[in-house]
Design a protein around this nucleic acid. Structure first.
Lengths: 329, 329
DNA sequence: CTGAAAGCGCTTACAG
DNA sequence: CTGAAAGCGCTTACAG
């Protein structure tokens, strides 16, 4: 048998209620009683059972975190931000991977409910009506992490991807580039697809330049390499590439180099994310900085506000992005 | 109010015990009764409360996962392996970062106990006596993930780092290298420190070659770049570098290239980990493959065996490593 | 400031 | 094959 709050109460000569009070600070307890309880706790090496507490209080101090895939560095970085802030507020996180599949996402939301999490941090590619309905059914506070709800029905923390792409493209134009290729991820991806496309597109239209789009099915290096080679094989001329991720950008650089282009003198490259990759490739990548850790941290902070009924400035937080200029431009 | 097992029982005209039985399959239930219960569950949209279940059954179906830092790609990869297998066996994971600090690790083990996790997957750099004691106090099944307990007191899943380093060094010798530098992480690190050092050292001694060791305080690119430049500044000649991580190896390549060495013709480089970095740098890195995902997956599988009293072949699993030869050798 | 008691929503012997 | 009842270890009105 393990030591319970009952044992502590007996040892200290008080009631369980009193032990609970000193444990949780939920009511004033006479200093003397308090000390007796604390001594008993120490003596018995008592540790409260969080499951029992969760059942009784209906708060588990646990947050469900659903991500497409933790093994993606970009995701892992945000998860770290989430966990750091969670700990700060005495929460734990249950982490699940959805692979971005709707069925799995819905299933996970259900099991998160079963686990009685206090709230849900959700990362995904697309917030469909069906998903919103599932969130509602679960009756859980939800914060979208680096995930946009086009209709803003759900609190979220994001970066302005459209604006970032706009600025990056404008930078390329200022540097003299005219034939600028956008090497993008799946357009349906509401974070790194459409918004980045459209920011790029706007500059091209404003500048009366011909948009050159290549939509990759995925955002990894291998996909990018194939895509870029394919594009180059068409024999079109090129001044610059704006790539939707660091891996795509790296692939673009390599494909261009292989095709005989000098970077940055002949072709300039800008990427998104500012992952560690950007300074480990040659030339080092100029890149849009996404404050990924902060996106995770702010999401979790927003969650604590929702949970504790603290005032919230904005339910759709946009974190500032930045651009780091390195050797590829 | 939420719908509980009591509501289902009433709706189906049976007892709560019976509902529990069809829910958990813990006893044979007449098909007809079973159907009534299932219908009631569906009708009421009933979902069992896992917290109550956890309290009553003393099994939470939750595993605590303590890692130094999820945002390290190597770690994230293992966590993904863990979570996949956990899901397969209907477990969830609570993820925590320790930053490899003993105090935090001990603290986390305690809170994991409070959360009543069924078991603990632990990743760290060093398994001290104090930590072992904390594990014992928590009375939880523990599996070490990519973490060695020098005295083998705790079940673990690892790769034979010593052997891997031995083979890599031997490969370099066969390729004609004589002056081989080992660019290592902190020697105190029981996974990527000492074992890799010693495998390297053994070959050098067998071959009567002078060992050239450089111990970095960390294993990241920046540290490696500084270290390697410092080493090269001594003006010593070099045929090859064996680096303890992909980032260190990348740094070594860049420092050598900057110093005018051709890779691989003048200096060969081999790294550890086979992360995505290895094929995104030029030249692509020859590397020791660590089956990281599998290390995580097998650890979790071992945990389920411990939890369900399944027979276990070995409590210290060693997974096979491999070597991928690319352009850097 | 403190205690007695009900209750959180399940599981699990026990009995039949 | 099924039910009644105790119990898991806490919290929380309620009362004083």
């Amino acid at each position: 048998m393990n030591v319970t709050i009952y044992d502590v109460a007996r040892e200290a000569g008080v009631s369980m209620a009193t032990v609970s009070r000193v444990l949780n600070g939920t009511a004033v307890v006479k200093e003397e009683t308090r000390k007796k309880v604390l001594d008993a706790i120490k003596k018995l090496h008592y540790r409260p059972n969080a499951v029992a507490r969760g059942l009784a209080s209906k708060r588990t101090k646990t947050i469900g975190v659903i991500v497409p895939d933790v093994s993606a560095p970009v995701v892992a970085e945000m998860v770290r931000g989430i966990e750091d802030i969670a700990r700060m507020y005495q929460y734990h996180i249950i982490l699940c991977n959805s692979d971005g599949q709707l069925e799995r996402e819905k299933d996970l939301i259900g099991t998160m409910w079963e686990k009685q999490v206090d709230g849900l941090l959700f990362m995904g590619h697309d917030i469909s009506q069906e998903l919103v309905k599932t969130f509602e059914d679960a009756q859980l506070p939800v914060v979208l992490v680096n995930t946009v709800d086009p209709e803003n029905r759900i609190p979220s923390v994001n970066v302005d991807n459209r604006q970032a792409a706009y600025e990056a493209t404008q930078f390329l134009v200022k540097e003299g580039a005219r034939r600028i290729l956008f090497l993008g991820g799946p357009r349906s991806h509401l974070v790194l697809g459409e918004p980045r496309y459209s920011g790029y597109l706007q500059v091209m239209q404003e500048q009366m330049l011909e948009p050159l789009l290549f939509e990759c099915e995925d955002t990894d290096y291998e996909t990018g390499l194939t895509a870029m080679k394919q594009w180059l094989a068409q024999g079109k001329q090129l001044d610059a590439v704006l790539a939707a991720t660091d891996e795509l950008a790296t692939a673009a650089m390599h494909a261009c180099q292989e095709a005989g282009y000098q970077i940055p003198s002949q072709v300039k490259v800008i990427s998104f994310d500012n992952s560690r990759l950007t300074f480990m490739v040659r030339p080092e990548l100029t890149t849009i900085v996404q404050p990924l850790y902060d996106v995770g941290a702010v999401s979790m902070r927003l969650m604590t506000k929702l949970l504790h009924d603290e005032p919230v400035d904005s339910y759709s937080v946009i974190l500032p992005h930045d651009m780091v200029i390195r050797q590829s431009t």
